[in-house]
Amino acid sequence: MGLDIRLPIGYMFTLLGLLLTGQGWLNNNNAYQCSLNINLWWGLVLLVFGLLMLIPAWFAKKKQ
């Protein structure tokens, strides 16, 4: 099939990652009972995952 599934997955998680990181950055409401800005940190995790999907997909597209 002509669609590389890594692209939509990558875009979606990058977007969600940015959104969550932004939310964590702006209002630092710590996760209950947890001295940790979970939105910020998990947003970064999603961002990294999204880019890990996107970058190889971009390279594969370039090669074609």
Binding site: L19, Q23, G24, A31, Y32, C34, I38, W42
Partner: peptide, 11 residues
């Protein structure tokens, strides 16, 4: 409900 602040909750 117990652990997710808005944002993570949506996720």
């Amino acid at each position: 409900k117990k652990y997710c602040p808005s944002g993570l909750l949506g996720l």
